[in-house]
């Protein structure tokens, strides 16, 4: 990779490349490639952006205690996915992102997708779920400072991330099902998924209201007692 001296620029690029350039490439792929190739391309690009992020994580050092805390949060999300109707996955990912930082947030979201799909079924949707939930966690980490202080903002973020999740997953649904990426079909998919989207948004808000402070306090305690 190209060596960039300024760490701030490097940091910005690291976030920009996987999460803005890549979706842009997906959209470009939609117009450039014929037939179903863009479904393939979007899948490929989603996997690549997850891989890119994970490679960054592999290169850094992560203390054993942080590893365990990430695992505990992930397990909570995985177990939470068994709750009927309303799912706390995104909310727990947001909490992890806010209190433990973007990277941990991403990991919690992405790993929850992989592990919980051992119970819910693996498929080509797994990378998309990793990507969407990971992105929610990363975003929560980036805006963590504001989200922690400003409750309405936090709930708004929860709602938005519910919509975001739905929107990303719909792209996949449409690409997979139809011979073409048509806005009609996409809008129809979004419309037909609207009840689910609303449910995602609402359950995110509910779980953020119920759990944010409780779990946050516990995480803060752990961070001070065990020095992370």
């Amino acid at each position: 990779m190209v060596v960039i001296g300024n760490s701030a620029i490097r940091k910005i690029l690291r976030i920009l490349i996987p999460f803005f350039a890549v979706p842009a490439a997906v959209l470009a792929g939609v117009y450039v490639f014929e037939d179903k190739m863009y479904a393939y391309v979007s899948l490929l690009i989603t996997i690549l952006s997850v891989v890119l992020f994970i490679s960054g994580f592999e290169r850094r050092e992560t203390g054993s205690r942080r590893m365990v805390i990430v695992v505990v949060m992930t397990v909570l999300a995985v177990v939470g996915r068994f709750i009927p109707v309303i799912k706390p996955v995104a909310a727990i990912t947001v909490i992890a992102g806010v209190y433990l930082g973007g990277e941990s947030g991403f990991l919690v979201g992405a790993i929850t997708a992989v592990i919980s799909n051992f119970f819910w079924g693996q498929g080509p949707w797994t990378p998309f779920q990793m990507f969407s939930w990971g992105l929610i966690g990363l975003g929560a980490g980036i805006f963590g400072k504001y989200l922690k202080k400003n409750k309405p903002l936090l709930y708004a973020y929860g709602a938005i991330s519910g919509v975001l999740f739905s929107v990303i997953m719909d792209v996949w649904t449409v690409l997979w099902n139809n011979e073409d990426f048509s806005y009609d079909a996409y809008l129809a998919a979004i419309a037909s998924a609207a009840p689910m989207t609303v449910l995602y948004a609402i359950s995110n808000i509910i779980f953020l209201i119920l759990c944010f402070d409780t779990i946050g306090k516990k995480l803060d305690r752990i961070k001070t007692v065990y020095g992370i």
Binding site: T62, V70, V72, T74, V75, V79, L107, I111
Partner: peptide, 13 residues
């Protein structure tokens, strides 16, 4: 490292 995280999660679930 990701492999380890996955393995730990599978152990904890």
């Amino acid at each position: 490292k990701l492999g380890l995280l996955l393995s730990m999660t599978l152990r904890f679930v």
